[in-house]
Computed example of a mutant assay.
Amino acid sequence: MNEFGGLFICGGCNAKIGPGNLSKLLNGLPQTNDDRLLVGFDSTDDAGVIKLSDDVALIQTLDFFPTMVSDPYLFGKIAATNALSDVYAMGGKVLSAMNIVCFPEEMDINILGEILRGGSEVIQEAKALLVGGHSIHDSTPKYGLSVTGTIHPDNILTNNNCQVGDILILTKAIGVGIITTAYSVGETTDENFAEAISSMTTLNKYASEVIVKHKVSSCTDVTGFGLLGHLSEMLGENQTAYLTSRDIPVISGAYECAQELLVTAGGQRNRNFLNDKVLFKCDDFAIEELMFDPQTSGGLLISVPAEYAKKLVDELQQVDQLASVIGKVVELDTHKIIIE
């Protein structure tokens, strides 16, 4: 038993609605026709962007979810780190944040205090302003942020501008969904869990500050749709991504957990949605599960012209950021994504 009163089977980004159902809902909504809207929900991008002037655009996003860890303070840090990530994925700077809170009326209010303390520390690290929030009673605790950022209208990094010949770079290891699920039932070690926590509480701010100095084609953060789901959103109709499975970084212990079928419901939703788009040439079920695994507060996935890739990797590593070259973008082949 943990401080929230039970185990967490569907927390973090694993709790998000699957990409198939979500796309059907969004396709039915009326489109906004306004020249000020530079990026809207029709592009499945990381956040909305509204032009305020020739020099300033506003980035708007929000994210919240139920917990996947038993420590309220860590939950607050993870949820806040995750919510801020969309601004960094677009190359922007975080300006302000507001708390989003759902909390059971009968639960100890001090637990909520710890959640908010964790979140506020992350907001301070981001050098952003905490300006308020909204709270309601609910059957289970949920927490996140509504976030406002800024960017120059000419410098927006979108998630759908890959170019043939681009190299794909990933800045965090995958497998946190599988590790947190396994840890909740006592099937992985404290050391593996600590590595996952470290990843989930590392702001993408530091990687983003390097990325914006380079001629990057496209960028997104890897969250609930998993590595393959978010990669599929980046690719154009006439493009295929070739990935090398051995080059994809994995949280310690996650591969072994996947081999033992300690996988997530969100991962299965992602697999079902992407089934006809992905071809695995490697015969390795565990690797497949890791690539479909929903990531909470995952890393940035970057598409960059080949001639700039090495310099970008070098500069990311100089500021202690993981930078793994995991594949490349080519002209359309038999599938949208092919993994060897």
Rank of each mutant, 00 (worst) to 15 (best):
A286M: 09
R269L: 08
T181Y: 09
I167K: 12
H214C: 06
D166H: 12
D276N: 12
D190F: 12
I251A: 02
G186W: 15
F280Y: 12
V212L: 10
S218V: 11
V176L: 03
T223E: 04
Y242G: 08
Q268E: 11
R269Q: 15
L243G: 09
S252R: 14
G186D: 15
D190W: 10
L243V: 07
A182T: 09
G253Y: 07
M291T: 00
T201V: 13
T189V: 04
G253K: 09
K277R: 14
A286K: 10
N238T: 09
D221M: 07
A254Q: 05
F273E: 00
R269K: 11
N204R: 14
G236W: 08
I287A: 08
Y206V: 13
R246N: 10
A173N: 02
G175D: 11
G253E: 04
N238V: 01
A196Q: 06
K277N: 12
M291K: 00
K205F: 03
G236V: 07
M234H: 06
Y242K: 14
E288I: 06
A207V: 00
T223F: 03
T244R: 11
D283N: 14
L261R: 09
T201I: 13
D276E: 13
N275K: 15
V185W: 08
T244M: 08
N238M: 03
